[in-house]
């Protein structure tokens, strides 16, 4: 017993050390955001002399924070909803039917392959397409694009997970006369909670932080999301790191809060998945 406790202590110490290492950069970002420009130029590690809240105020003002926040929300959440619905259905179908019908296997392969495509080569055609469809600088246009580029990975995740769910339950339902759609939405989908939470959390994060696509498709200041706006604070030759980090932290705050709230469900979801059949 005593042995176990000693090992535990070591594990805890080690864990604390690793936590410290991981936390350190974020701490630096937070610290710097409270410093004035000249404080930053003098020393990176020093504690701020006064809490330069003007960094935050300036950042909010210059980036038109509320509008940008609204834009970020408007493009992130609808996309994640669409992604979850479409990929769960798609992943389910591929996982269940790949063995019998080759076409699903090819689709799975296609999705995996598409993950290798770097965005630069799609940029000009996408821009042209959006221009002719008049979707440039529109929030709907962004939602379509963000959903489209995320389907492949999300489906990939669902495929793996669905395979680990035994077929018996839904087959029983089908035999009982339940339709395939009902079988999916009523029986299978609830069992997908763990992976759905993971997919949703990941994509909220990624889409919120999306930069390249927003840069290309959204050029009007009024529709730009937070990530693009805060990039300007890290202007190429004119960095005021204090304000830049303040802007960055403001941008990240919604996601961090979201994740903290969703954490509970993530934990439940993950351990819930272990207790099945």
């Amino acid at each position: 017993m005593r042995e176990k406790r000693i090992v535990n202590v070591f594990q805890i110490l080690f864990l604390l050390l690793v936590m410290f290492v991981f936390l350190f950069p974020s701490y630096i970002a937070l610290l710097t955001s409270w410093k004035t420009r000249i404080e930053v130029s003098r020393s990176a590690l020093s504690f701020p002399e006064t809490f330069a809240i003007q960094n935050y105020i300036e950042a909010i003002r210059k980036s038109q924070f509320l509008t940008a926040l609204k834009n970020s929300c408007a493009i992130t959440f609808p996309s994640v909803l669409l992604i979850v619905i479409c990929s769960s259905m798609g992943g389910y179908s591929i996982a269940r039917h790949s063995a019998k019908h080759k076409i699903f296997k090819y689709l799975d392969r296609l999705y995996v392959s598409s993950l290798m495509i770097p965005f630069q080569i799609l940029m000009i055609p996408v821009y042209r397409m959006y221009k002719s469809l008049r979707l440039l600088n529109t929030l709907q246009g962004m939602v379509l694009m963000l959903t489209g580029v995320s389907i492949a990975y999300a489906t990939f995740l669902y495929v793996g997970f669905v395979k680990s769910i035994p077929r018996e339950l839904e087959e029983a339902a089908l035999i009982d006369g339940c339709g395939p759609y009902k079988a999916f939405f009523v029986i299978v989908f609830p069992m997908l909670k763990p992976i759905t939470t993971t997919v949703a959390a990941l994509h909220v994060m990624w889409l919120w932080n999306d930069f390249n696509i927003s840069l290309v498709l959204m050029q009007k200041e009024s529709v730009r999301p937070l990530t693009v706006k805060q990039y300007y604070f890290f202007g190429q030759y004119a960095s005021d790191y204090g304000m830049a980090f303040a802007a960055a932290i403001l941008t990240m705050l919604p996601v961090v809060i979201f994740f903290m709230a969703a954490q509970k469900y993530l934990v439940e979801g993950i351990s819930g998945g272990a207790v099945k059949g």
Partner: peptide
């Protein structure tokens, strides 16, 4: 089931 995702893709 696969259609909507595929369309977006």
């Amino acid at each position: 089931f696969i259609l909507p995702g595929f369309c977006f893709f």
